[in-house]
């Protein structure tokens, strides 16, 4: 029989005593009342600690302490920092050679165009579903629409004529936009006889004023994006790809007439 040590007595209290040592400890306690009193006190200490703090472990866990939620949040934070890294790569790529923006969106790195396209597709999805409130200013008030949107975007804006492609202007609206593209965006909506709708999302030029072109497929919609020294423009629709291209080219042709390498003319 081994001598009973303080560690064995604590192990007895903590329920971690080897079964083989148990008889020795119990005999020791029976023979030494002052030791038994000390051990009883340790047990009461543990009971008091559990009585004080154990309830905290049974409270419902608040949402901010859900592991899956935290994982989702850190994942998106990582994604954001990845995007910054990707943006840096884009800048380096621009420095090394042009033509980067000609690369397809899904293949290339995220850039200002990606958020503009995303905004355009979102706005398209939201407002083509509307009937009575599809537009803010109807096509019947086209002159006002053109003046208003041109003023708000601080860039001359004309509504392309898509009648050759079977589309007529429904109207337009002003939307909040990307801060680096003037903070505002104009959305023009067109509709054909089959009630298919196409939207044209226009913002002021990006700070770099660099020409860019992209086709993208996002959320089931086709988007054709381009940028020049005056504007960025994204044509969004759910038409078959060939028809989307025809419409996009018509919009592009009409909106890039004149010298698009120059900035917007001075507006008083």
């Amino acid at each position: 029989m081994s001598a009973v040590t303080r560690d064995m007595l604590m192990a007895y209290v903590d329920g971690q005593l080897d079964a083989a040592d148990r008889p020795a400890v119990e005999a020791h306690l029976a023979a030494n009342p002052e030791v038994a009193a000390e051990v009883l006190l340790w047990q009461r200490q543990s009971n008091a600690l559990r009585a004080l703090f154990a309830p905290a472990g049974s409270e419902p866990v608040p949402a901010r302490l859900r592991a899956h939620r935290i994982a989702a949040a850190t994942g998106s934070r990582r994604m954001r920092s990845w995007r910054w890294a990707a943006a840096a790569v884009v800048l380096v790529g621009l420095g090394l050679g042009g033509g980067w923006f000609a690369r397809p969106l899904l293949n290339g790195a995220p850039a200002a165009s990606a958020s503009l396209i995303a905004d355009a597709v979102n706005a398209h999805t939201v407002f083509v579903a509307e009937n009575r409130h599809a537009v803010e200013v109807p096509a019947t008030d086209q002159d006002h629409l053109v003046t208003w949107l041109s003023n708000r975007l601080s860039t001359p804006l004309d509504t392309p004529d898509l009648s050759a492609e079977g589309f007529t202007l429904v109207g337009g609206r002003l939307l909040p936009g990307e801060p680096n593209a003037g903070g505002r965006a104009a959305q023009l909506m067109y509709e054909n006889a089959a009630k298919d709708r196409v939207t044209v999302y226009v913002t002021a030029a990006l700070p770099d004023r660099a020409p860019a072109y992209q086709f993208a497929n996002a959320g089931g919609a086709e988007a054709f994006y381009w940028a020049n020294a005056r504007i960025t423009c994204t044509v969004v629709g759910t038409l078959p790809e060939a028809q989307m291209k025809t419409v996009s080219q018509a919009v592009y042709r009409q909106m890039t007439e004149g010298d698009v390498t120059a900035g917007p003319p001075y507006r008083g």
Binding site: L52, F53, A56, G57, S58, E59, V61, R64, L65, A67
Partner: peptide
């Protein structure tokens, strides 16, 4: 996730403050 209740309990006993304890657990997670 199965460890979170124990972490909260332990942190509460250490800090004696509900908000500090949960902040600590959140940082830990």
């Amino acid at each position: 996730e199965t460890c979170v209740p124990a972490l909260r309990r332990y942190a509460r006993a250490l800090t004696r403050n509900i908000d500090l304890a949960d902040d600590l657990v959140q940082d830990c997670l």
